[in-house]
């Protein structure tokens, strides 16, 4: 065949339609912005009673619950198919990444399915987040010694 992998890479690049970046970004901006705006509204309500830290935590809890409620009937997936990073990057996306495998792998049992697979997407996020914060903790501790 008159083809080599290097040529083919070029050919494939030319033939593959690019993502509609502008449209994608507008969706991501407005949906992501709206979720954050909703979060701000919830936070302002909690701030009526609680301090900044607790209000922040409670806001996350409400958003996670909302995300789970939208994930169950499949609506979060439908929104995300358009919104892309707009639904991926907020904490609601994290919650979706935990709730969706839990629902999906119920068929494989509560321990080996739900329990194990629940971390399939969120696991690396928690793992490397904790690792990075530990490194920062060490540095911060060392910096405190001088």
């Amino acid at each position: 065949m008159k083809l080599n992998p290097k040529q083919y890479e070029e050919m494939t690049k030319r033939a593959s339609p690019p993502s509609p970046v502008w449209k994608d970004c507008l969706w991501a901006f407005f949906v992501g912005g709206a979720i954050c705006c909703l979060g701000e509204g919830i936070r302002q309500i909690w701030l009526l009673w609680y301090d900044e830290e607790l209000a922040g935590t409670l806001t996350s809890l409400v958003l996670i619950l909302l995300s789970a409620l939208l994930t169950m009937p499949g609506w979060y997936q439908k929104l995300a198919a358009k919104a892309g990073a707009g639904t991926l990057v907020p904490i609601t996306g994290f919650a979706n990444s935990v709730v969706s495998p839990a629902i999906e792998f119920k068929a494989e049992g509560w321990i080996t399915g739900v329990g194990a697979k629940i971390f399939i997407i969120a696991g690396p996020v928690i793992t490397y987040g904790v690792l990075a914060s530990w490194v920062w903790g060490l540095l911060y501790w060392v910096m405190g010694k001088f």
Binding site: A34, C36, G86
Partner: peptide, 28 residues
């Protein structure tokens, strides 16, 4: 909240569209 939150999501979207990073990698 809207502008900054939306802006951070746009950064994520640009990474999705221009790199081969999968969503799990972007979250991490």
């Amino acid at each position: 909240a809207f502008v900054v939150g939306g802006g951070i999501c746009v950064v994520g979207q640009l990474l999705l569209d221009y790199t081969k990073l999968t969503p799990a990698r972007i979250l991490t």
